[in-house]
Every structure is written in C-alpha cells, then in structure tokens.
C-alpha cells in the first residue's frame, strides 16, 4: 500500500518514517513524500495507480491542500484514492470546505498517530 504524504514541512518525512517504522520494515506501507501541492500533483500523475491514500496538509505556500484535493478529485481514477486532510487549522470553515471538495477525513494537528494508524489500517 502506497501513501502519498504532502506537507511543506520537511521534518514530516522523518516523523512519518519513525512513526510507521514497523509497518515500513514489514513492507505493509510504503510512503512517498511531496513538499508542495504542485509536487504532489506531479507525483500523483506518475504513480496514481499505486497511491491508495493521500495525506495532505492544507496550508502550504503556492497550491494549497484544498486546491490539491480539488484537482485530485477531478482526475477520474478507479478506485478513487482516499484523501485525508491534515491541518493545524481545525476551524469549521476549513472543515466544511474540505468536505465539500470530497475529502474522506479531516485530521487536526498535532496528529494522534495511534488514531491515524487505526484509520489507515481500516482502509487497508
């Protein structure tokens, strides 16, 4: 299972790799990282048949996570990827916007990785 993680903060890679080190070691999950919306879109274009799950930040310079979400949902792909938004901005407006655009989940930072892991496992 391939997961695309999108965030403008570089440390997010190290964090995910350590948090999911057992799953990575066992080959259960494979992570791909993108550090901007644009990069994520390119990456998704290249490996869309592999990516099952996209975890994206919302507030990023340039293309925002919501814009990325909108574009990904426009690309018709079967089965459609599950997109979870991860953001520091847990306000109602952001939430509603994300839901409107077809986000599958909305996670507020700081991330509870135990809960996240369970969610991911339920998708697999």
């Amino acid at each position: 299972m391939k997961i695309l993680v999108v965030d403008d903060e570089k440390d997010i890679q190290s964090l995910f790799e350590q948090r999911f080190r057992k799953e990575i070691r066992n080959g259960e999950i494979e992570f791909v990282f993108a550090f901007s919306g644009e990069e994520a879109l390119t990456c998704y274009g290249k490996c869309q048949h592999e990516a099952v799950l996209i975890l994206s930040d919302i507030n990023m310079p340039g293309m925002s996570g919501l814009e990325l979400l909108r574009r990904i949902k426009q690309i018709h792909h079967e089965p459609p990827p599950v997109v979870m938004m991860i953001t520091a901005y847990g306000d109602a407006e952001n939430y509603n916007k994300a839901m409107e655009l077809g986000a599958d989940d909305f996670i507020v930072k700081p991330v509870d990785f135990i809960a996240l892991k369970e969610k991911i496992k339920s998708i697999i």
Binding site: E9, D11, L15, R19, A88, Y89, G90, D91, V108, K109, P110, V111, F113
Partner: peptide, 12 residues
C-alpha cells in the same frame, strides 16, 4: 493555529 505545526513535531 500556526503554533500547532511545531507542536505537532514536539509531541510526536
């Protein structure tokens, strides 16, 4: 809100 970003790293 912005402060949640560094806190995310500190906690995790």
């Amino acid at each position: 809100h912005e402060i949640q970003n560094p806190l995310n790293f500190v906690n995790n």
